[in-house]
Design a protein around this nucleic acid. Structure first.
Lengths: 341, 341
DNA sequence: TCTAAAATTGAAAACGGTTTGGCTATTTGT
DNA sequence: ACAAATAGCCAAACCGTTTTCAATTTTAGA
């Protein structure tokens, strides 16, 4: 059913019908009601592609998905979905071919030029992120999930990784731990740098020298958690506590400790960052996992909200949100045992 | 840069330029080359919305995302992305408001009518799935990931859940287990029914009566895995083996067994279904987890491929793929211990 | 009651491409 | 050498809306 045909059925011009449905003020209330009723009855809905062509709006916000198949991703998108379901906006997932730098820029450029999305959400930015510079230059509205130090105005939402990890680390120090290992995320990303910084600051303020032998970084997988933890624990002077980057990493750390006969919370303490997944909860681990916690889903919802604000004209300069992170202490952290050496 | 302007620059008519870029045969090779070069040089690319309006193609395939934030989802999409990155097609994620039946139908109906997608992938169908009937009725191309018994022609790709679970269960029986618990997925979905069926058939062919006290189903979370396993193990006549629906469920089962001082692989055997996640691998668990395995990512890639075939005219009736599932035995399964009763 | 202003409605021009049908030059076949 | 076929290109119609601008009807003011 096309507008023209529908308009004829209702006995009005396409113009008026269009206005009635789009809620313009210059159409009488009675007419609007009549049109609305007829639309439902006859099952008319405007052709999206025509609307988009005419208005220039794409009705979608874009998210570029890397190859790594991050488990955070689904949760973030579920959050976005929660907000977007009420709007006439959907999520466009753009597959990224290779982690190749140049290709990625090309991808963003094409994405912008193709006008398939009204805005883009950029994930895990680096301090000097080319994508941000590019999007700004191209005039595409975008929001950064995470932070960048780049000297280009942009909207962002981030969690306070530095403070979170600083508090977590300080807490371990307060418990008497002096040899603390750190398993961080992908090197290069700002969030990893912030966590590193929080970690170092906590140590420093207690006069402890960070030991590069006990600091590692990589993808958030149980495998890496295990490998790193295991290798650290097998060192001559092993750590008594771990700060882990994710729930999966924590699973690996638990496994490593167990495999060496160490009891978590007594022989070794662990704090991890928890993005709050419905399928894997820190509280349920054995022993329950102390964690810095911030809901990925909530972030997705809020990011969607902010993007919508951006699209309705709010300045990117006003959109900066730094979310505090909870520190939830459970059984995986305990006082440091006396050194046996 | 618009077509008209670009055509003028190249010194050709819009018609010829359009044809040259779209690869129509009635344009000479030299002209085509010239146009292609100029397009790159001048940075011309057709307005997607105009193309879509004219051709009626949306250039996207739709996936409806439920609220549950399934962790499989991201992996499946990553797989799709692998295939789609080469095409001019992207993934449209449609947020689903409520798990409300009527609303979901309404959502699909609107999605089809809005012409935002060229095809839809339907997940976790039920034996008599209304969505399939609806999409068929509306004439929207779609592919079902999973299976349905509904009497409507449709393309599908599924893994052989029944055989997988049957083999897994049979293997446990061969090891001497007689009391085997089953923790299945969301009731209602065909895959869960197939698994149930495989489970029962294995028992039956060995003359074992399934015990409803040791069968449960629900979301794939570690929490439910733990709860069910724990309650089963605390029964007067506890199971000696578990068939678990997912990796997360298995984590919960491991936890439950440990919490009761039972050793996995010796006191209790566990087999789970593994969708192959990069961040949580069965091989790395302690003890390593025996599993029925099938790559979710590969399924995503193949589904994308099949949808593209569907769109280029292949009949849905020809598209039926049933993938075999590997059974990988590791340390979590072992011979049943003699009953202590 | 009559006119100016306000409230409604419509006709037609975009939006930016693709594609039908027609029109010239070339080839090709005999 | 000539008719028929083929290549290569273009003008114009069309896809289904939104929106400008103008026309018409009501309402308000004097």
């Amino acid at each position: 059913m096309k507008l023209k045909e529908f308009a004829k059925q209702v006995g009005l011009s396409p113009t008026t019908v269009s206005r009635a449905l789009s809620g313009y003020p210059e159409v009488s209330e009675t007419t609007r009601a009549r049109v609305a009723e007829a639309a439902v009855r006859l099952g008319y809905s405007p052709n999206v592609n025509a609307v988009r062509l005419k208005t220039g709006r794409a009705g979608a916000i874009g998210v570029v998905m890397g190859r790594a198949g991050e488990f955070h991703f689904a949760e973030f998108m579920a959050g976005m979905a929660e907000r977007l379901v009420a709007e006439e906006t959907d999520i466009l997932v753009i597959p990224m071919a290779d982690p190749n730098q140049e290709d990625e820029m090309q991808l963003y450029r094409r994405l912008v030029e193709s006008r398939r999305v009204d805005a883009i959400i950029v994930h895990s930015p680096k301090p000097n992120d080319e994508r941000i510079a590019l999007l700004h230059e191209l005039g595409m509205p975008f929001l950064v999930h995470g932070r960048s130090a780049i000297d280009v105005p942009h909207a962002w939402l981030d969690i306070d990784n530095e403070t979170a990890i600083k508090r977590a680390t300080s807490h371990l120090i307060d418990l008497g731990h002096r040899r603390i290992a750190m398993i961080n995320g992908r090197p290069g990303a700002t969030y990893a740098l912030h966590r590193d910084s929080g970690f170092r600051k906590a140590l420093q303020s207690h006069g402890i020298e960070p030991d590069p032998q006990m600091m590692a970084s990589g993808n958030f997988t149980d495998e890496l958690g295990f490998r790193f933890a295991r290798s650290f624990l097998e060192q001559p002077n092993p750590p008594t506590a771990f700060v882990a980057g994710s729930m999966m990493t924590a699973l690996g750390v638990y496994r490593a400790a167990r495999s060496l006969g160490l009891q978590i919370g007594r022989d070794v303490s662990v704090i991890a960052h928890d993005d709050v997944f419905p399928y894997l909860t820190a509280d349920n681990m054995v022993p329950s996992l102390s964690a810095t916690r911030s809901s990925m889903r909530a972030a997705g919802t809020r990011c969607a909200d902010l993007v919508l604000q951006l699209l309705s004209g709010r300045s990117p300069l006003e959109i900066h949100e730094l979310w505090p992170v909870e520190l939830i202490l459970r059984e995986s952290t305990g006082p440091a045992r006396q050194s046996t050496s």
